[in-house]
Simulated scan of single mutants.
Amino acid sequence: MIKPSKLQPGDTVALVSLSSGLAGEEDIRWRTEQGIERLESIFGLTVKVMPHALKGLDYVYNHPEKRAEDLNEALRDHSVKAIICAIGGNETVRILPFVDTDALQNNPKIFTGYSDTTANHLFFYKHGISTSYGPALLTDFAENIAMDEYTVNSIEKTWFSAEPIGEIKTSPHIRKIGLSWDSENKSTERPKDNNPGYESIGASGKGRGHLIGGCLEVFNNLRGTQYFPDLDSFENAILFLETSECYLDPEIFEDYLRAMSVMGIFERINGIIIGRPQEGQYYEEYKEVWQRVLAEARRDDLPVMYNASFGHNEPKCIIPYGLQAEIDTVNLSFTILESAVKD
């Protein structure tokens, strides 16, 4: 994989809205501004807001080509060192026909987001660029009161250092959802629950391979399209998957996993790391489905780690695509063996 250059204080990062245009809505602008201020004050970065990023829900939805134009301009701009997605959504796949693939390959940048942004990550991956399944502006950088230290530390280790990332523990706590993004709530800290840590739900042992994955619902939606990874991409991989705030019914969840099994994905991988379901919804049910479908696929030998702190969880860590990683279900550890960026 082609790695982008590391960030340094003073660098410029671009803000884009490649999925939902929520960041531009009048009642959300305070939160957008708060996220931008955190990028500046905590990390010493300069934020360039791309021309269409804050034009609101209707405009952003109706103009996928303008969303892609913002991405293309950020890729071509040599002063821009990273691209930050404002938030996810549900139809960023519509921008992909308009993306300048030459600019993508010739100007590798740090690129971050999660959820619907999985489609963008897989597009980058197909073109050989390593990206970060990680924080978005409205959710993580704009967290009420202050950013979580766990997320800040992950950003510093992943984007600001060319050293191997090393072991990634789970977050010490889990933020509760349900506090609306109203300006009158901005000074209210979201409640926290203790995080019990990783859980092994597969075979005992280690699995090593390159990282590929994202949001399960987006994976399902991309199946059969030109944007879904070919099966060779899963050979000897560590698959990372999580689910969104839609709280998939366990029966539908099972259908999605079984489809991946029938495609032959589980035959090829060396291990799986699974993000905690948001709010712990269907925690036990999803765990049982994973075990049942893997047993059907005769992959009881596969090391599988559950309850990881990425995706639809705050605080969250960053999972960089294409990097070599190891899961160890005996010691309940997850380690990324190389750097996500270069000097």
Results as ranks from 00 to 15, higher is better:
Gln226Pro: 01
Ile274Ser: 01
Gly205His: 13
Ile273Met: 02
Ser204Met: 12
Gly209Trp: 06
Asn221Gln: 02
Arg268Asp: 07
Gly224Glu: 08
Asp249Trp: 05
Pro229Asn: 09
Glu242Thr: 15
Leu211Trp: 15
Ala203Gly: 09
Gly224Cys: 07
Asn270Asp: 07
Arg258Gly: 00
Phe240Arg: 09
Leu222Glu: 05
Arg208Met: 13
Thr243Val: 15
Arg258Pro: 00
Phe228Val: 09
Arg276Asn: 09
Ser244Val: 05
Gln281Ile: 14
Gly280His: 10
Asp255Lys: 15
Leu257Arg: 03
Leu239Trp: 04
Tyr282Gly: 05
Leu216Tyr: 05
Thr243Gly: 09
Tyr283Lys: 12
Ile273Glu: 00
Phe253His: 08
Phe234Cys: 04
Phe234Asp: 04
Ile272Leu: 06
Tyr256Gln: 12
Gly224Leu: 06
Glu245Ala: 15
Ile265Lys: 06
Tyr247Ala: 15
Phe240Cys: 08
Leu211Arg: 14
Phe228Arg: 04
Ile272Asn: 00
Glu254Trp: 02
Gly214Ala: 10
Arg276Pro: 04
Thr225Val: 03
Asp255Gly: 07
Phe240Trp: 13
Gly205Asn: 13
Val218Tyr: 06
Ile274Gln: 03
His210Asp: 05
Ser204Asp: 13
Arg258Ala: 01
Phe266His: 04
Glu245Asp: 11
Asp255Glu: 14
Glu279Pro: 01
Gly271Arg: 01
Phe240Pro: 03
Arg258Phe: 01
Thr243His: 08
Ile269Ser: 00
Ile265Asp: 09
Gly207His: 01
Ile212Gly: 07
Tyr247Asp: 12
Glu254Phe: 01
Leu241Lys: 00
Ile265Glu: 07
Glu242Asp: 10
Gly209Arg: 07
Gly214His: 07
Asp249His: 14
Thr243Pro: 06
Asn220Arg: 11
Leu216Asp: 04
Arg258Cys: 00
Glu235Val: 02
Gly280Gln: 11
Gly264Leu: 08
Val218Leu: 10
Val262Pro: 13
Gln226Ile: 10
Cys215Gln: 11
Leu241Cys: 01
Ala259Thr: 15
Phe219Pro: 01
His210Val: 07
Asp249Tyr: 10
Glu217Cys: 03
Ala237Trp: 02
Arg208Tyr: 07
Arg268Val: 10
Asp255Ile: 13
Val262Tyr: 15
Ile274Phe: 08
Gly214Glu: 05
Gly275Trp: 11
Asp255Leu: 12
Ser244Met: 05
Tyr227Lys: 07
Glu242Cys: 12
Ala259Lys: 14
Gly207Ala: 03
Ile212Lys: 07
Glu217Ala: 02
Tyr283Trp: 10
Glu251Pro: 00
Gly271Pro: 10
Phe266Gln: 04
Ala203Lys: 09
Leu239Tyr: 03
Asn270Pro: 08
Ile252Lys: 13
Tyr256Asn: 08
Ser204Tyr: 06
Ala237Phe: 02
Asn236Glu: 11
Pro250Tyr: 15
Ala203Ile: 09
Asn236Trp: 05
Ala237Val: 02
